[in-house]
Amino acid sequence: MSAHTASAEITFHPEHAEGTKKIWKTFWLLSIITIIELGIGLAIYNIHKGKDPNETLVLMFKGMVCILTLAKAYYIVSIFMHLGDEIRNMIMTIVVPLSLFIWFIIAFLWDGNSWKNLRNTNAGTKEYKVEKVEKPAATEKGAKD
C-alpha cells in the first residue's frame, strides 16, 4: 500500500492493509460491552427496587461497569484513534501524563468521603450517624391540603 506522508520527517506509515475487518470487530466488541453494561445497570435497578438492597452486591456491580468502561476506552483509543499503531515514543507521551488520573481520582474521592464523615459525626464530636429526613413540623397542615 502506498504511503501518503504529510512531510519528509515522517519515515514510516502504519499499515492499514488489514482492511476494515478490524474496525468492525472493534465495533461489535464495543457494542457487546455496552450491552453487558446495560444489563448490569438494569440489575442494579432491580436490586434497588427490592425491600432490602444488598449494597455490597451493588458496589461490586458498579466496580464491574467501571472496569468494562476502561476496556471500552482502551479499544476506542487504541483501534479507532490508531494510537496502538503509533511508535512507542508517541504512545508514552500520551499515556504517561494521563496516569496522573490515578492519583487525581483516589485523592479527590477520598476527600469527598472524608467530608461525609465529618458531616455525619458533626466534625468528630459525636458518633457516626446518618441523619434521617426530618418529618416536616407542619404535617397536620399538609394533611388538610
Partner: peptide
C-alpha cells in the same frame, strides 16, 4: 467528572 464524584461521595 472528578469534582462531581467528590461532591457525590460527600453526600449521604
Amino acid at each position: 467528572l472528578i469534582s462531581y464524584g467528590t461532591l457525590r461521595f460527600s453526600q449521604n
